[in-house]
C-alpha cells in the first residue's frame, strides 16, 4: 500500500499500536507491519519523526531505556493519547461506514 495513502492515518495507527503496551521504535514498526498483515510497510525511518511528533503533542511519552546494555527509546501512550485514540476510533468508524455505504451501495445506517 502506498505511503501517501497511509499518511493521514499514521498517527492514529501508531497510537493504536501503542495501546497494546510500551514499545521501542523498532517494535512499533514491526507491530504496524505484522498488525496489517504486511500491507503497511512504510519507510521505517519515517516512523521515528512521527513518534516524535506524537510525543511533542503530548499523546505519547518517550523514555530512553537501557535494557540488555542497549540504548533504546521506549514509547507509551499518555492519558491524552488514550483519549485521542478513542476519538480517532469513533470518527474512523463513522467515516468508514459512510465510505463503505457509498462504494458498495449498501444503505448507511442512520445515526
Amino acid at each position: 500500500m502506498r505511503a501517501e495513502r497511509l499518511k493521514g492515518h499514521l498517527d492514529a495507527l501508531l497510537l493504536a499500536v501503542l495501546a497494546g503496551g510500551p514499545r521501542h521504535g523498532y517494535g512499533v514498526i514491526e507491530a504496524l507491519r505484522t498488525g496489517s498483515g504486511g500491507r503497511f510497510d512504510l519507510p521505517k525511518g519515517t516512523i521515528y519523526p512521527a513518534l516524535h511528533r506524537l510525543e511533542q503533542a503530548g499523546l505519547v511519552r518517550g523514555t530512553w531505556s537501557d535494557d540488555t546494555g542497549r540504548q533504546r527509546r521506549t514509547y507509551e501512550l499518555t492519558a491524552a493519547g488514550k483519549r485521542q485514540l478513542n476519538d480517532e476510533r469513533s470518527s474512523w468508524r463513522e467515516f468508514s461506514t459512510a465510505v463503505v455505504a457509498l462504494l458498495e451501495g449498501k444503505p448507511c445506517p442512520a445515526t
Binding site: 519507510p43 521505517k44 511533542q56
Partner: peptide, 20 residues
C-alpha cells in the same frame, strides 16, 4: 533499504523541529 531515504526522514522531521 527498509529505513528509506534520509530525505524522507528529514521531511517528516522538519515540522517537528519547527514546532519545537
Amino acid at each position: 533499504e527498509e529505513f528509506g531515504a534520509p530525505e524522507a526522514i528529514a521531511d517528516e522531521y522538519a515540522p517537528v523541529a519547527a514546532t519545537a
